[in-house]
Every structure is written in structure tokens, then in C-alpha cells.
Design a protein around this nucleic acid. Structure first.
Lengths: 251, 251
DNA sequence: CAGTGGTCTAGACCACTAG
DNA sequence: TAGTGGTCTAGACCACTGG
């Protein structure tokens, strides 16, 4: 049973993707949509809010909403699972554990995982491929309490996220991500089949459960050219707008 | 006159930042907050929705909201203005135009700016610094209609976004961004003072006005280590959750 | 000026969590 | 089972856009 506003969002999204509303064109007013879908204005607003966060439409007070694009920008909800992201992008995905061992948490790892230095953790080195090509090297440190479940996962498992959900009901609910560029080290270069020092896109992340308990701290390095992060944004509720508004020459 | 829900969001945000609600702690229920702030439940929900998009709190049906972090994750609303972003991060920011010339749009540029190939555009090469250190090289192509206003801007202007707003009222309302890693080319290396081939974080973007008209297409390259993108996300409304839900072993 | 989106209210029912 | 967040309604007023 999906929510009514999700259905409406879906229908509008489909219409936009089909080109029924061209990029730059106006969407019907909230009142019209409420009539068309036999829903209240509030529900319609929830629906278009979904499209707005997907980057498909923009809005300003007083004017009708306009279509900004025909493709959903990358959802950061999918940033927690490499496999899910890759499949959504149409890739054939695979993975292989290269190393796996228990050790004591370093100071950094302890801080990220809300543990004490020296507490037991599980370090895993995993190579992930897209369409058979090495694309990403994943160095993950799991908190000790989840280590046994991780060790039971097949070494060529496609989606760790899904495996941990199915085996112990664990949900990777929240993530914090740091994205930057680094030079390939010796091991990076060898395993990703690139030259040492060549550019890699790095994504470091902490993932937590629903109640905020850290599960893993990971350093993922993507071969240049293998992936691109895509974002669509707007200045709505942007402080800059207000700041500039104050500076605007009076009429 | 700020909106009521923004005030409430502000008070709650301050309380979280002050540590009044610790990371991992529960927020009061919507009903309690409604009473405390003498607002309806709907308004309170709008307020906590703001905190949720800032990545400060998370929520799940049936359980109280919990605090995820004490710092706002980087707002992508600020992704459109280098100067605004840098100032928000506490940097002293400067910029210098190195080259500026009118020419005809290439096929790629025309496509990005919704023009015809050969249409007049203005190409600008700008070096941007943080605390006096070269940090980013910006290669921007402006649509012809805005070119005159851009040419009037001082070559050492800090914020182009603000300058164009003040001079002609232009608002950079929407942006589409592609983030990846590339190797420094000859010019990149020279101007950013790094070795050729060293890693750079690249952000390509198209910026448009409120009505969806493209203003600029830019290729920005950051020196490795100078900046990091930071994101906080959640699986709320994540398709994966539903997909996994279907797979859950029946009770 | 009419139309539109932004904000707010008051009340209702449901799905889910947690003790 | 009680409490909580998720969804939905119907109506109101305001700020802003655009002709």
C-alpha cells in the first residue's frame, strides 16, 4: 500500500520523463492537480515536494512550478550501497574480498565508530567491479559487534548491505560521506590497474543504524572515469538569496 | 519576517548544537513540541523536516526522532557559489581572471547552454584562492546574453554570483553538478602549483535562472586536499528498504 | 488585479515501535 | 497497548508573480 502522494508524484514524474511536460515548461497549479487527482492541496504539495527533492521541478512563490530536467539526479539515499547504486545505473556489479582480519581499533577508527582505541574491529579489503572491470577499492572497518555476521558473508557477495539485512536484519539507515580526490598508492595502483599517483575519487563514510550506532567506517577509492557523482540543487531557502535581497537597490 | 517553522527549526538546531540534545538522544515528540512552541503539529513537522534535510536528525515511523549529528552537513544550496561556500567554511577567499574572450560555442557548450553551435559565448579562466593559496581553477563559458554584464565585473571580484545579482538582478537559481576526479593537465599544474598528472577534484556544472534558462557551463578543478564535499543522508523512502522488506523472512 | 505558491491550523485515521 | 510519526483533509490568510 503506497501513499497517495507517492502515486501522484509517480504519475507526474512519468509525465515529465515522457516529455509530456517539456524542460522549462510549467506544471499545472496545485489547485488543478488537486482536482485532477481528487486529493487535497496538502497531498499534492507533498507529491511535488518529492519531485523537487529529486531535482525534477523548481518552484518560487507566486509563479507556477517549472520542469528543470527529465532525469532524477543521483539520490544520496543510494550512497550507502555500492551494489544498489551500480544496479540502478545499469551496471553488472561484482565484488571480491581480498583480505579480512580482526584487529584493534586505531584512534581514528575508534573515534569514527564511537569505540575505544584497541576495541576489536574487523578490517576488510574488497575489490568491486562494474561490468567486470575493477572500479573501486573498499577498505572497511566494521565495529566488533557486527563482525561475526560480516565474516559469514560469501567473499564474492554482491551486496553487503543486503546480505547483512537478510542475515541479521541490520539496516544501514544513515550515512555521513566525505568526498575528495587522492593519488593512487602502491596497493591502489596494483589492484585497480592504474599507474601509481594517478587520480582516484575517494569517498569516506560512516554508516549507522536507525538508532545512530556506527556500523562501519570505510575508505572507498574509485578509478577515475569509472563513476561520477551527480547532483541537482536549488537556491530555495538559501541564505545567499536573503543576504542578496537585503542588498538589492530599493525601487 | 521569517516563517514560524523556521524559528522553531532554529531553536531546535541551536539546542542540538549546544549539546542540549546529545548525538543519539531522542527529540521530544511532535505533540510536546507543538505545545512548547504554541504551534500546530503540521508546523512542528515542517520544522523538524528542515533539520532532517540538514542531516541533524533522523526519523522512523513509530519511534521518536533521534539526533544524528551536531553539524549541518554541507548544503548543496551553497554549491552554486564558490565564494559563499568558502566564506561559510571560514576561508578568506579571492579570485583573479586570467583570460577572458568571446568566441563561438562548441557543440558540447551549445548543448549544455541550450544554444546553437557557433552562437556567441564568453569564455573565462579564473583562478580562485583560499587564504591566499591557489585552490581552484575555473573554466567557465557564459551564454552570450549575460556576457556584457560579466565583462563589466572587476577581474579580482570575490563573488561573481553576488556581482551579477547586484548589477543586473540575475539569480543563479538552479544548478546541476557532476563530480569526479581527473589528472592535472599542463595548464592546471602550472596555475595550481601541482605536478602534472596529480589528482584534482573536478566539479562540472550548469547553472540556470529561475525559469530554467542556462547561464553558465563551468569546469572547476580543485587541488587535492583543498576541499572536501560532505554529505549526510538517510535511507528514508529508499527503494532498497522496500525491496529488502519484500525479502524479509516471514514471522 | 487575479492567480499561485508559502504558511498555518485543527482534527482525523493509520502503521509502526517499544515496553 | 499506549505512544509516536506518517498520511490526509478542508479551510484560511498572506506574499509574491505576472499580465
Amino acid at each position: 500500500m503506497t501513499a497517495r502522494y507517492m502515486d501522484i508524484a509517480g504519475e507526474l514524474r512519468d509525465a515529465i520523463v515522457r516529455g509530456e511536460y517539456a524542460v522549462g515548461a510549467q506544471l499545472p497549479s496545485e489547485a488543478e492537480l488537486a482536482v485532477r487527482f481528487s486529493a487535497s492541496r496538502g497531498t499534492v504539495r507533498q507529491a511535488v515536494a518529492v519531485l523537487a527533492t529529486e531535482g525534477l521541478v523548481g518552484s518560487r512563490q507566486g509563479a507556477r512550478r517549472i520542469v528543470l530536467g527529465r532525469e532524477r539526479s543521483q539520490s544520496f539515499a543510494e550512497l550507502n550501497s555500492f551494489a544498489q547504486w551500480a544496479r540502478a545505473m545499469g551496471y553488472r556489479v561484482s565484488g571480491q574480498v581480498l583480505e579480512q582480519r580482526r584487529l584493534g581499533a586505531s584512534v581514528t577508527e575508534a573515534a569514527r565508530l564511537a569505540l575505544q582505541p584497541g576495541d576489536p574491529v574487523l578490517a576488510v579489503l574488497r575489490l568491486r567491479s562494474l561490468d567486470g572491470e575493477p572500479a573501486m577499492l573498499e577498505r572497511t572497518v566494521y565495529a566488533g559487534w557486527i563482525a561475526p555476521a560480516v565474516e559469514r558473508i560469501a567473499h564474492d557477495c554482491e551486496s553487503i548491505t543486503q546480505a547483512l539485512f537478510e542475515s541479521v536484519g541490520l539496516v544501514f539507515a544513515y550515512g555521513e560521506h566525505l568526498i575528495d580526490a587522492v593519488a593512487a598508492g602502491v596497493q591502489d595502483a596494483q589492484l585497480l590497474a592504474v599507474r601509481r599517483g594517478s587520480p582516484l575519487l575517494r569517498q569516506r563514510r560512516v554508516t549507522t543504524t536507525h538508532d545512530g550506532r556506527p556500523v562501519e567506517w570505510s575508505d572507498d577509492r574509485y578509478r577515475a572515469g569509472s563513476v561520477t557523482f551527480s547532483i541537482r540543487n536549488s537556491v530555495d531557502a538559501n541564505p545567499l538569496v536573503r543576504q542578496m535581497g537585503d542588498l538589492r537597490p530599493s525601487p
